[in-house]
Design a protein around this nucleic acid. Structure first.
Lengths: 340, 340
DNA sequence: TTGTACGCGTTATCAT
DNA sequence: ATGATAACGCGTACAA
């Protein structure tokens, strides 16, 4: 509430009867005569002095801030990432800034261009619709290190944390096949998103590998949210009532599918087995609990934070790629049995 | 990746053959001779100039940043708040900084004291264990406006957004009573937290109002997470097998209770009705879907952001209090019927 | 050991 | 209309 001006090193210098240089030295622990140290510290204490971080940033050319730009804070995947990123940065003395781009490419580019204002020392970004030429250009002009979570075009000079959703889909379909399912439907997200595109290809590949035919009636595309999943599931069930399993491009879609199956009186997994993707917190809350492909969101967040810190502390070096392996968390929506 | 130094107004001035004052004027849209404007803009364009936000902050004494400090990003309640706060701030031109204090009072105080570094223009804070004298002192010394989400001691000079969990508990118990439940258990969070304490009192009051006796066997205290809820539910069921309803201090606790009831073969709501609190996303995902007391997390977040913006834009004024009314979202865990 | 003076990049005041 | 110059608060090379 108070609007009083804060004390600066000048105020302290005056009060302690020394120069601002001495004040600065004492405050930064540089060798100083004991008497001077005492007087400065005393004055600083009395005045309740706290260094101005903005001035310090200007002088030091670093803000001790890092930003994380994601599509949508509401998505549990990004939440899992933030949860891991935050403590890593905090431990290293960085503050975390959050950008929500609403999966809007223009917004993403704004964030990247904004880096030139130097309000952060680095950025972790997870672009939904992929890294375009514009992204690459903006990253190059950014003058601050960027770590991208998600796939980037071959040869893009950026630190990069990715997963292998292809293998992820494969794990899921293998699992379903082993359970005897042969009519495996696929509820995907938008094809113009990176995950959507990759998962579409992966689905066909996995079918091939299993010797199952591709049937367009078994595929439905919507957005990545629960209602879209419900809509898609309804459509697919109408067209292909004999479907005996649903592979979903993320957990939210799977939840929507579960809703629809329940209302339609189809048993899960008895009639239709369901697999989600991302293995979010929701998977263990759903009923039946949801078998889900983990793409290591938490690990990816942590890895990205570490890559960025390393770059911030050690400067330029070869761009690095970290790949997080997917895994399958089996729950009741495919086996009928809940893991402890 | 590049480490090139960025152009400053000096660079531009040189290139355009004018003084830095003119550059600044042009860039800030102050009246300037057309010829000068053209040359400056041209130079700025050529050089890809972007103003340095740190220098600007130092000069303007404002950072255009606001922080939100919460106990735990993992908690869906705070997530709901962030989701609302972010767009409001963004629209007003502020960046959002996130602090996770792990419900640690010392951490909260650190954040408040940190305000004196002036790295943000304002702060929204949601202290779990209440506003202590230390908080009040730190807020007063902060030299940046603070908005507290949660209750604050009477007369504390801070903008404040609160809800009325007392009424919230009352709504839930009325609902359960109307459904014929008479042995209503209570799974609470830690009593030394503000929500925990308030809800404990509210539970007794509501029982009184309904003419139901208070029975210590029907009350269990744990932490605010799912496992704690499960533990508490187990204990309570052991002591009072005749319980016919469970009021839970938040949704996570309720989820834990649902897990236990299911394993124990108790029907929900047939044998035991369950009510959660906070009405998070999880409530509609759970099975059965969870009746939950909404404490307006989203509204509270939005209100807090607005209060802060108002204070930032209009300066000192009387501290204000916004109260968000609770409401009950009825779902299957009490009625057996899903809404819609 | 200490003080003076300059630079970090902007904005704003005051002459001209 | 424009330019020189003084802040904003801090850190440090250099001189004393």
């Amino acid at each position: 509430m108070s609007v009083a001006e804060g004390p600066t090193i000048n105020t302290i210098a005056e009060r302690a009867g020394v120069s601002i240089a001495s004040v600065s030295r004492v405050l930064n622990g540089l060798p100083t005569r004991e008497e001077t140290v005492r007087r400065v510290l005393r004055a600083a204490e009395d005045l309740g002095y706290v260094p101005n971080s903005v001035a310090r940033s200007l002088r030091n050319r670093r803000t001790d801030q890092v930003a994380f730009a994601m599509a949508d804070i509401g998505n549990p995947v990004y939440l899992a990432m933030v949860r891991e990123i935050q403590p890593v940065l905090k431990a290293a003395g960085y503050r975390l800034l959050l950008h929500s781009t609403d999966a809007d490419v223009a917004d993403e580019l704004d964030v990247l261009r904004g880096l030139r204002e130097r309000y952060v020392d680095g950025l972790i970004m997870s672009p939904l619709r992929g890294v375009t030429e514009d992204h690459v250009a903006a990253i190059a002009a950014a003058r601050a290190p960027v770590v991208v979570i998600g796939s980037v075009p071959e040869g893009t000079p950026v630190d990069n944390v990715r997963t292998d959703s292809r293998t992820g889909v494969r794990l899921a379909l293998d699992h379903l096949h082993a359970l005897g399912r042969r009519r495996i439907g696929f509820l995907n997200g938008p094809l113009d998103t990176v995950p959507g595109g990759a998962r579409a290809a992966a689905y066909r590949e996995a079918l091939d590998a299993l010797g199952l035919p591709y049937d367009g009636d078994l595929v439905e595309v919507g957005d990545f949210y629960r209602q879209d999943g419900a809509r898609a599931a309804r459509a697919l069930l109408g067209r292909a009532p004999d479907v005996d399993a649903l592979m979903c491009a993320n957990d939210l879609i799977a939840l929507g599918a579960l809703d629809v199956l329940r209302r339609a009186g189809r048993e899960v997994p008895g009639d239709v087995a369901v697999v989600g993707m991302d293995d979010t917190d929701l998977a263990s809350v759903a009923w039946p609990t949801l078998t889900s492909v983990s793409l290591g969101s938490a690990e990816r967040g942590r890895a990205a934070a570490r890559l960025l810190l390393d770059r911030l502390e050690n400067g330029p070096r070869e761009p690095r790629v970290v790949v997080v392996e997917p895994s399958l968390t089996v729950r009741a929506s495919t086996t009928g049995v809940d893991p402890e």
